[in-house]
Design a protein around this nucleic acid. Structure first.
Length: 274
DNA sequence: CACGAGACCTGTTCGC
DNA sequence: TGCGAACAGGTCTCGT
């Protein structure tokens, strides 16, 4: 479930609370259970537990697809990868099958990291830059302009889609939102990035932001068993719509493979030049 | 440097 | 019904 809009949705829920679920801000960590040790990317279960207990949550934020919990001296960083999820539940709730890590608070609530595929990772560090340092710009940050995108595209010869998925190029896009943005911008995923004109780059910039904002507004996309309550999956234009008509021209959507990822395009709206 | 394949994992869906 | 293949929102590493 985790691209920028889904991570942002979880971030807001944990920070601001939800009906029946309080905000986690200010909560003091009283206990930690590491159920799948490889979840911890940069420390041992013992070190993780000892450092975490007693710290409290000061700030909850997002950077790219990372969730950030700023604690007393340390920062806890969570990447959900393909199937990860974060849940707030009572300490008394039985551990679900795919729980990999639980953090108990003094008030009887716990934060549980559930991850069927075990790809998700958690970092604990006093210096978040160690983990986040190589991330590219935030696409929704006001300081990220269309000209910035154009200039970055010019510096690479790579195909558009793999480049947009590269988190050091731009932080937060994944397979769904990249396909959707490229379709909205009428750009082919295999187009060399340095061949985009300024006006094509501006179009892409606007469409990336549009699709991410819509995803956030709809609280993300919920597919299969990974569910969070968002409904953006009902508004996909091309993603997982192979054979269905393009919403703009009616041409059947095609599926191709680009950089080992399923990729969905309208062959009429997204044409590779020459 | 750019790209492809393989690895890491489990669960669901599809095709025969 | 059963069984294997294909596929899934991500990213890292290795070889060419």
């Amino acid at each position: 479930m985790p691209e920028l809009p889904e991570v942002e949705t979880i971030c807001r829920i944990l920070r601001e609370g939800q009906p029946g679920i309080p905000s986690l801000l200010g909560k003091i960590i009283a206990g930690v259970q590491v159920l799948w040790p490889r979840t911890l990317a940069n420390c041992s279960p013992d070190e993780f537990r000892e450092r975490l207990i007693g710290q409290s949550i000061q700030v909850i934020d997002r950077r790219g697809k990372f969730l950030l919990f700023q604690l007393s001296p340390d920062t806890l960083m969570v990447h959900l990868r393909m199937s990860g999820d974060l849940l707030v539940e009572a300490v008394s709730t039985p551990l679900a099958l795919h729980h990999r890590l639980t953090i108990d608070f003094q008030d009887g609530l716990r934060l549980s990291f559930n991850d069927a595929r075990k790809f998700g990772r958690v970092w604990l560090s006093a210096d978040p830059g160690e983990v986040l340092g190589s991330l590219g710009p935030e696409p929704l940050d006001p300081s990220f302009t269309a000209l910035d995108l154009y200039q970055r595209l010019q510096t690479s010869h790579r195909q558009l889609k793999p480049l947009l998925l590269d988190q050091s190029f731009l932080a937060g896009l994944g397979n769904i939102y990249t396909d959707e943005a490229l379709h909205l911008a009428h750009l082919h995923p295999l187009m060399p990035s340095n061949e985009l004109t300024l006006s094509q780059a501006e179009r892409l910039w606007r469409r990336i932001r549009q699709v991410l904002e819509e995803g956030i507004r709809r609280q993300g996309a919920s597919i299969d068993w990974v569910y969070r309550g968002g409904d953006f999956q009902n508004y996909f234009r091309v993603y997982q719509r192979t054979g269905e008509p393009c919403p703009e021209c009616g041409t059947p959507i095609q599926r191709l493979v680009v950089g080992q990822r399923g990729t969905h395009i309208c062959p009429n709206c997204q044409v590779l030049q020459r």
